[in-house]
């Protein structure tokens, strides 16, 4: 695919002595939300961590735009404009909400207009601006983690299961927020919540046991119940 912003080509990753990713190949087109689905333990988080350089690919190539980032140190990958919202959110609990946001800004300064937009997406960020982040609720921490990723325009944002443990009302809010964010950047979204993924994603890849077992358009997958059942029965069955 030519319009790809991120390309993984036969990526193998080991964690300690375990072979976890068995040759992931995937193209993420520029713009919009691209979803990575898969059941627990399929390798979604490992894929995102490998892209960020937090695990090292043993074999294969990861190319972001025209940069080969396979062996690049994590900070350099981030500096290319890739933000990462990890599964555990990676909030600095000992710092205030403001300090968390400030660290994420390359210059240490804020663009007031952008900050205003973030506040309107996530009012809790403004409300708790000077509070210590460890006191935030799980949902508020998730909002902070996402706000941190968009404190300036990024080329791409990797988000790992943002809906985990959130109430349905908050998830609905999140859909709106993500739609807005996706207007200016490319989102690679890891999800297990198919309804959430379906309402956002344009493209989808399904991963199982460290391999991509399907990739295509979201509309196509959403329309094809048989395909869903075949690919996602495992992951949907595990949903509560």
């Amino acid at each position: 695919m030519s319009g790809a912003i991120l390309r993984l080509d036969d990526v193998h990753t080991d964690i300690a002595q375990y072979h976890i990713l068995h040759g992931i190949s995937m193209n993420v087109p520029e713009g919009g939300v691209h979803v990575l689905l898969g059941r627990n333990g399929a390798g979604k988080t490992t894929t995102l961590r490998t892209i960020m350089g937090l695990w090292r690919a043993r074999k294969g190539a990861i190319v972001f735009r025209h940069h080969d980032i396979t062996a690049m140190p994590t900070p350099d990958i981030a500096r290319l404009g890739i933000a990462y919202v990890p599964e555990n959110m990676g909030i600095f609990g000992g710092l205030t909400v403001e300090e968390n946001m400030r660290l994420a800004s390359t210059t240490g300064r804020f663009d007031d207009e952008r900050l205003g937009r973030i506040f309107s997406l996530f009012p809790a960020i403004e409300k708790f601006w000077t509070s210590q982040a460890s006191g935030l609720s799980g949902g508020q921490k998730q909002m902070l983690a996402i706000s941190r990723a968009i404190v300036e325009r990024r080329e791409m944002i990797l988000i790992d299961e943002p809906t985990k443990g959130l109430a349905p009302a908050i998830i609905r809010n999140m859909i709106g927020a993500f739609r807005e964010i996706a207007r200016e950047t490319t989102i690679l979204l890891v999800e297990q919540n198919f309804l959430f993924a379906r309402s956002l994603g344009s493209g989808v890849a399904v991963i199982d046991d460290g391999r991509i077992v399907h990739s295509g358009g979201m509309a196509e997958l959403a329309a094809d119940e048989a395909l869903q059942t075949r690919l996602l029965s495992l992951s949907l069955a595990e949903q509560h």
């Binding site: 994590t74 990676g90 710092l95 390359t106």
Partner: peptide, 23 residues
Amino acid sequence: RIGLLIRAGVENREMVESLGFRI
């Protein structure tokens, strides 16, 4: 700012690197 980075790094080194800083 360096102090902020140190405090953040003590908490979560990986996240500081993921934000683009060389720990």
